[in-house]
Simulated scan of single mutants.
Amino acid sequence: MGLYNKWCDATKNKDKRKRYWTYVEKHGGRDDIRDDLAETIRSHYGRLELIAEDVKRLGYKVAAKILSESMPQTVKGRSGDLGEILATELVEEEIGLRVPVRRLRYKDGRNMAMRGDDFIGAGYDKAGEKLWLLKGEAKSNKSLGKSTVTSARKVLDRDNGRCTPDSLLFVANRLLESNDADDNALGRSLRDEVGLKSLRADRIDHMLFTISGNGPHASLKDDLDATGTNRDHYVVNIHVADHQDFIAAIYKKAEDLGDE
């Protein structure tokens, strides 16, 4: 069972190519996913096998310090990163596209936001032949409002709705560095797309992902209603009432590798 199935109750509405998904924590859901979410967060900052190697060589305390050095220490930084992490997991769990590069591993500084698209999903159509992309923008707010939603939509619409070339090249180049042949093939497809721009809008989905303390603001549905029908649109909200306390607690758990 995936992270979201254990953690939240979902309400999913669909109108043609527009999907409006809202999630509310189940009673006891947070307890059920606490350990898994902490490990997921760690995996977005470093490969789990490297963390395990640090533990083996240096012990839990030093390994935890190394891990902590890659994680943001500011409230804003952790909130933004967690939005991207949860969005990535949702895309892979609920949509079936890959988010093939954990880009938080490549930050210039742990408290700095990365430039470019927040997350890119990639894969192929049902026949396994034609490239399919998802361009995503993630927002994490104690109180979500219209200005944040409007700003996120503006980012999704820039570059004629395409993934920005620098973001797509970043993902492509990381995949081409892999030793996996499937990664290489996908990376080549992405790199080719940067030059050819051959994908039609109907094969570049958009997702506006939000996690907030006040739940789904009315502007989210208004925003979705105003979008076109030339691509699949996903507008998502995760309602976590104690938004900031939740983030602080889950990062504390992620940084704690234990002692056994």
Rank of each mutant, 00 (worst) to 15 (best):
G2E: 09
W7N: 10
A10E: 12
A10H: 02
A10M: 01
K12A: 07
D15Y: 05
R17F: 01
K18R: 07
R19Q: 11
Y20L: 03
W21C: 06
D31P: 01
D32S: 15
R34S: 13
D35M: 13
T40V: 11
I41Y: 03
S43N: 14
G46Q: 04
R47H: 11
E49P: 08
L50K: 14
E53A: 15
L58N: 15
Y60A: 13
A63T: 09
K65P: 04
K65Y: 10
I66Y: 10
V75Q: 14
G80W: 05
L86E: 06
A87G: 15
L90A: 00
L90R: 00
V91E: 12
E92H: 06
E92P: 02
G96P: 00
V99P: 14
P100Y: 02
P100K: 08
V101C: 14
R102S: 13
L104E: 05
L104V: 13
R105I: 03
R105E: 10
D108W: 04
G109T: 11
R110G: 13
N111H: 12
M112I: 03
G116H: 08
D117Y: 11
I120N: 09
G121E: 03
G123M: 00
G123R: 02
D125G: 08
K126C: 01
A127G: 05
G136T: 10
A138S: 10
N141V: 03
G145L: 01
S147C: 09
T148H: 15
T150Q: 03
T150M: 03
S151N: 13
K154M: 08
V155E: 15
R158D: 04
D159T: 04
R162S: 02
R162W: 01
P165W: 08
D166Q: 12
D166W: 06
F170L: 11
A172F: 04
L175H: 08
L176N: 04
D182I: 02
N184F: 14
G187M: 09
R188V: 07
R188D: 09
R191S: 14
R191D: 13
V194C: 10
R203V: 00
R203G: 01
D205V: 08
H206S: 05
M207W: 04
T210K: 04
S212V: 08
G213E: 08
N214A: 11
A218M: 01
D223P: 02
D223S: 14
G228S: 02
T229P: 00
T229A: 05
H233S: 04
D242Y: 11
A248P: 00
A254W: 06
E255K: 11
G258I: 02
G258P: 00
E260Q: 07
